[in-house]
Design a binder for these strands. Structure first.
Lengths: 237, 237
DNA sequence: CGAAGCATTGATCGTCGTCAAACAATGTGG
DNA sequence: CCACATTGTTTGACGACGATCAATGCTTCG
């Protein structure tokens, strides 16, 4: 999974070796558990090895906003390498295998392999790009478009880590979690999804998503994958 | 203005010199002009020397969403150093003095001065943090809170670059621009502002903002400046 | 003085929130 | 194996926040 990095540029043997032998503490975490919390001053970052997680923040009123979904291969709190105190929490959505890597070893890696450091920087920039797109999505798109857009993003990102077969994939995200990601209520998400099903845009039941007509969904979500800055452009598929 | 960097750590003479002699092409740009556009593949980044700018994206429907305000000292497209194609546009809000620095010289700077590279990385991480907060703001806060929050952010960031006297500052942002930043319409922004004025939360007329009761505004906006990751905590003031 | 841009106001409409309940699926323990 | 607890989905009625449409002021500036 770490080989997401490899898609950006070809690693030297040296670099690959450094990554493969990266010391990390692997932990299995149940669904719906905080991995790190806003306000923490972590001394390590976490790499999602399997499962779905999310980055979120809370208002003073106790409302939750998910600002990003974290998929296998992501390091959602890589930022903590430079920013001492975390300004968001990270929670699992499904059960996850998480690898914890100390900042010390990450620093070491960056100093020894400048190109890996650059790749890490790049990763955080793509995260930022995704946040920007989400501001647009939440601020200016409504109902079906908004939902369609995150679905498109999820599918494209899942495809990039090889978790989409054909036009279907596992999607262990509840309607309540979608609501927190979209700035909606659960009730509204439910109604939007029903309308999308009725219009044949998606087939979604349980943990399984199927996309009968990718082009139409893309169009509904005004989805242009440029902002994900993927190298191989899997978006066409 | 570049000395925003200096607030993070003390520069060596060498580093300071490198920054002060940084070759850049300075240009004065009128209000409401695009500096760079989504889709561009820029070979240089822009440093805001004076004036207000903003980063924005558009929906296919032609609706605009501002995802960030750019203040003097910011380098809003530093990301283009690593991401070839821009996924957002940048426009001036007021007249701006902008310094263009080629990627070449930036790379050179980063290689020669790793601590400056780290500081740049850090800057982009703070940008990301601001985007996250905006997702929360746009997704989960309404009316007055939403408005109060961006006002708080603006004041704190302006104070960090010494553009706030007492409790007042220049704020050349139109209601239409606020609307695009908040995901509202101009009409609604107008009504929210009037209510805030009526409640004595702000005094805003023309380009001038005055904050009679900072604590109350902070409270209304649920504003906690942690996410800005400022070193000296000017937030108390 | 007229034009352009911005702020303001009013009336009406719609997306989405709130509240409340019922239903389905899953899993646990007696 | 069934009771029942838990979690997620679905439905309905109603209300509100904010959008839309359309004028009307108010500045500023050439």
């Amino acid at each position: 999974m770490i080989r997401k990095l490899e898609s950006v540029f070809t690693l030297t043997d040296d670099e690959r070796q450094a990554l493969e032998t990266l010391p990390m503490q692997v932990q299995v975490i149940k669904a719906d558990q905080d991995v790190v919390r806003e306000g923490d001053r972590p001394s390590r970052s976490c790499l999602i090895l399997s499962g779905f997680a999310c980055t979120y923040k809370m208002t003073a009123q106790g409302k939750r906003q998910i600002v990003s979904f974290n998929l296998p291969g992501d390091i959602p709190d890589l930022q903590s390498l430079h920013l001492k105190v975390l300004d968001n929490s990270i929670s699992t959505i499904s059960q996850c295998r998480v690898g914890f890597i100390t900042h010390e070893t990450l620093w070491d890696l960056c100093i020894r392999h400048p190109r890996i450091a650059a790749a890490f920087w790049r990763e955080t920039l793509i995260d930022a790009s995704i946040f920007r797109e989400w501001v647009l999505n939440v601020g200016r798109r409504e109902g079906i478009s908004r939902m369609a857009h995150v679905l498109c993003e999820l599918v494209v990102r899942l495809r990039a880590v090889d978790l989409v077969e054909d036009h279907a994939c596992d999607l262990p995200i509840t309607q309540g979690e979608f609501a927190d990601a979209l700035g909606f209520t659960t009730v509204h998400v439910n109604r939007v999804l029903q309308q999308m099903r009725a219009e044949g845009l998606i087939e979604l039941s349980g943990d399984r998503l199927n996309i009968p007509d990718w082009d139409r969904l893309k169009q509904m979500g005004e989805f242009d994958p440029t902002y994900l800055h993927l190298e191989s452009d899997q978006a066409a598929a």
